[in-house]
């Protein structure tokens, strides 16, 4: 499931393939599906009981990528970013452009032509181009158009004994865990929101929250993990293999304290490993969901992803398994959500 999801392309603005896949997967298992005009999928899962508070689980279906900004006279594509990037990761990467999946390579001028200064600095996106093997603007325009989105080419692959590398793990991990929960019987009713445009300002989630009007929302995400050489322990954010990460606060939201206590309790009762996210960087759909309507109590649960927002994110398989378990356990216990309001 996760493999299929990661191999689909869904750069913000062109998420239809992911959307169609999800609908196809969940249709037999949910009571009602609404596809909002913006592309959000809102699914209602009927459980055995109705919980005292309305709960929504959110996962975003878009991924970071690039977009064609211009085509040069000699057939190269100039591009801009969709979502946030570390420019250092882009050079020499394989990409696929537009709906026709035209293959290309991100390039810059040859190293022997670069000045000393140019060699020592990070190459800005404005100096890069995508080579699709065309030799003129006219030739390139037969295959691609300005505004086409560009996705990375990176197969989902197992590496080592218990890890996976893929593109778009952010946030197909959330999508996969939510689909997996929907496929099983539920103790309590809940809404599953598969939302668009998280990477460009969490706008899809805003519409989803206005539509569902939840009291409580759990945001399912992938998050930064820099447990690698060169990072001091207190700056690592999360560690691979220590379980899904629960956020306290980041740049976008402060998780509801009592909701976090509740989730920790559920994890402990069910012997599911988890960790706290230990930096205040990053942001996600909680930003807009928590402010909608009369306010929403939010929590953020994430799979730690090394090299997030790159074509080769790496995750630990046990972390994902524990994440999937914890998501399901949380949803099966939301009848006790009254505790959060004591």
């Amino acid at each position: 499931m996760l493999e299929k999801l990661c191999n689909l392309n869904g750069v913000s603005g062109t998420t239809d393939a992911v959307k169609d896949f999800i609908i196809n997967e969940i249709k037999p298992y949910v009571t009602e599906i609404t596809v909002m005009p913006c592309g959000n999928i809102i699914a209602f899962k009927k459980g055995k009981y109705t919980p005292p508070k309305k709960v929504m689980a959110d996962a975003h279906i878009d991924e970071v990528g690039l977009i064609v900004k211009d085509i040069t006279d000699d057939g190269y594509l100039k591009f801009d970013e969709v979502g946030g990037f570390d420019e250092r990761i882009l050079l020499s990467k394989r990409v696929t452009v537009g709906e026709n999946c035209i293959p290309g390579i991100i390039g810059i001028k040859a190293v022997h032509l670069a000045t000393k200064e140019e060699r020592e600095k990070v190459v800005p996106i404005s100096e890069m181009y995508i080579d699709i093997g065309a030799f003129s603007k006219e030739e390139a325009e037969k295959y691609v158009k300005k505004g086409d989105t560009i996705a990375f080419v990176s197969e989902y692959k197992k590496i080592g004994q218990n890890s996976v590398k893929a593109k778009a793990l952010d946030d197909r991990v959330g999508v996969a865990a939510l689909i997996s929960a929907l496929k099983k019987d539920a103790e309590y009713d809940y809404y599953a929101a598969f939302t668009v445009s998280e990477e460009i300002g969490t706008v899809g989630a805003q519409s989803a929250a206005e539509f569902v009007k939840p009291d409580i929302a759990i945001i399912l995400e992938g998050t930064t993990c820099s447990d690698v050489p060169g990072t001091r322990e207190h700056e690592q954010s999360t560690n691979q293999g220590k379980g899904p990460a629960l956020s306290v606060v980041d740049r976008a939201s402060y998780s509801d304290k009592k909701l976090n206590v509740f989730i920790k309790k559920i994890a402990n009762e069910n012997n599911i490993d988890f960790q706290l996210k230990r930096t205040v960087m990053g942001g996600n759909n909680a930003r807009s969901i928590q402010l909608s309507g009369g306010g929403v109590k939010t929590a953020v649960l994430s799979v730690p992803l090394r090299y997030i927002h790159s074509p080769v994110s790496v995750m630990n398989i046990s972390d994902y398994e524990n994440y999937e378990k914890l998501v399901k356990c949380f949803l099966d216990n939301i009848g006790r959500a009254g505790e959060i309001y004591d």
Binding site: E233, H234, E235, Y254, R278, T279, V280
Partner: peptide, 16 residues
């Protein structure tokens, strides 16, 4: 401040 890491009685932290 959010405590991000602990080494004995040294607490590392991030700002809120």
């Amino acid at each position: 401040f959010l405590i991000t890491h602990k080494e004995e009685n040294k607490l590392y932290f991030a700002g809120i």
